[in-house]
Amino acid sequence: MTSVPWILDPSDEPTSTGVPHGKLGMWVFLASEVMLFGSLISSYIVLRIGSPLFIMPSHADLSVPVAAANTFVLIVSSVTMVLALAAIQQDNRKAMIGYLTATILCGIFFLCVKGYEYPHKWHLGITISSGLFGSFYYTMTGLHGLHVLGGIFFNSYILYQGVRGRLSARRCERVEYAGIYWHFVDLVWVVLFPLLYLL
């Protein structure tokens, strides 16, 4: 077997912070995302508490069991994502592909459930223009859904890289970055679920 010399990859380049640019960039991006969702959530809380026009639909209309199941699906997707990272760190490309595929499928399932929930709510008269709750509900879940969609694309790209054999134990930083983003999407839903469905 011939030895393969290392090839300098951009991720190998030393940085002044000691943190790879990709990782730092991802965290800075997520910090801006926190502010985006944070401002929406704080506006929701202020109006929910303060406005007499804020009418909350009943739990039955909100289909809490469906949303709870969807929350569980997103948590499962988070653990499969992190298992995909652990697999590639052990150079187990096949397992990584399996876990990453499961993560993508969970994301698609989550969006499909949202696709079921939305028309159900429209049928009950909860629309984006029906009141304050509807406006917030569709804005926040819609924005979150777009992030889920973005995560599915990101993970699909990583999966493609994995299938093409471009990922290994030494070249798995992209899996980690995709994971950080995906866990953030899960983290936002963990806050939105009780806020919009339970309280």
């Binding site: 290392w6 990859d9 991720s11 190998d12 030393p14 940085t15 000691g18 790879p20 990709g22 990782k23 990272l85 760190q89 134990a169 030494r170 070249r171 798995c172 930083e173 899996v175 980690e176």
Partner: peptide
């Protein structure tokens, strides 16, 4: 390599 390893999680 140490930094790359850190980058790789």
């Amino acid at each position: 390599e140490p930094q790359a390893a850190a980058a790789a999680g």
